[in-house]
Amino acid sequence: MGTGYYQFCPVAKAMELLDERWTMLILREMMAGSDRFNDLRRGLPRMSPALLSKRLQHLSVAGLIRNDDGRYVLTDAGHELGPIVEAIAVWGARWIGEIGDADLDPKLLLWDMHRRVDHDAVPPGRSVVQFEFTDVRGAARHWWLVIAAREADVCDADPGFPVTVTVESTLRRLTEIWRGDVTWQHGLRDGALRVRGPEHVRRTLPAWFTLAPYASAARPV
């Protein structure tokens, strides 16, 4: 644990655990459904494996999570933090709107999108969404999301399946859409977002994904 605040206040005691770097983001990932070490790493790509192991051990000792045969599971105490993490996300979306270029990450964006697929809205069978980020250079420019059998996989190399629909966008604009800063329709109108594919797929594609609760947070005028 980090240095204590040495105050009896419950806020101080809670923050002795929760304000360690990455701790709240680990909880965010677990609340979003990541329960394996490698999945947590994919949601926290800039966190070293050694530090992730250390933080998981701290959370286990503190009673917020437990290791259940290789799966990291929230305890009752961990689950009780759910509304707090969500409230922080809503507050951050509402009052800390600026995102810098260093905050943009296609891998993290696609990882978040893949776990919020509404499988009831996706056509039966396999659907492949190809993403092309027009402002990204090199291999990170192209990504694929393969949706089938109520599962979704993120691929950074062509999976070899026929593409159902292609989304072309700047990384910033698609990130802003995903965060709820602008709408899908706004992105189409300003030309930063283009969708290629059958008309019925282009029309229904936004409904294939459920946005995070913070995406609907009202922004200050």
Rank of each mutant, 00 (worst) to 15 (best):
S48R: 13
S48F: 11
S48Q: 08
S48A: 13
S48V: 03
S48C: 04
S48I: 01
P49F: 06
P49K: 09
A50H: 14
A50T: 13
A50L: 13
L51N: 15
L51P: 01
L52G: 10
L52S: 07
L52Y: 09
L52D: 06
L52R: 06
L52P: 08
S53V: 00
S53H: 13
S53M: 10
S53T: 11
S53C: 07
K54C: 00
K54F: 12
K54M: 08
K54L: 10
K54V: 00
K54N: 06
R55M: 08
R55I: 04
R55C: 04
R55L: 08
L56N: 08
L56D: 08
L56M: 09
L56F: 11
Q57I: 00
Q57A: 06
Q57V: 00
Q57T: 06
Q57K: 14
Q57D: 11
H58R: 07
H58P: 00
L59F: 12
L59H: 05
L59A: 07
L59C: 07
S60L: 00
S60T: 11
V61I: 14
A62W: 02
A62V: 00
A62F: 01
A62H: 03
A62Y: 03
G63A: 07
G63I: 02
G63F: 05
G63P: 04
L64P: 02
L64C: 01
L64N: 03
I65P: 01
I65W: 06
I65S: 04
I65V: 11
I65A: 04
R66M: 10
R66Q: 09
R66K: 14
N67A: 08
N67Q: 09
N67G: 05
N67Y: 07
N67E: 10
D68W: 15
D68C: 10
D68T: 01
D68E: 14
D69F: 09
D69H: 11
D69K: 13
G70R: 02
G70E: 01
G70F: 01
G70V: 03
G70K: 05
R71T: 06
R71A: 13
R71E: 12
R71H: 15
R71V: 03
Y72W: 15
Y72C: 01
Y72H: 12
Y72M: 12
Y72Q: 04
V73G: 07
V73P: 04
V73H: 13
V73S: 09
V73A: 10
L74P: 03
L74N: 09
L74A: 12
L74S: 07
L74F: 11
T75A: 08
T75E: 07
T75H: 12
T75R: 13
T75I: 06
T75F: 10
D76K: 15
D76L: 11
D76G: 08
A77F: 14
A77L: 14
G78T: 02
G78V: 03
G78Y: 05
G78W: 04
G78L: 05
G78C: 03
G78N: 05
H79Y: 14
H79T: 00
H79V: 01
H79A: 02
H79S: 07
E80Y: 15
E80N: 15
L81S: 02
L81H: 11
L81F: 11
L81N: 05
L81G: 05
L81I: 04
L81M: 10
L81D: 02
G82Q: 13
G82T: 09
G82F: 09
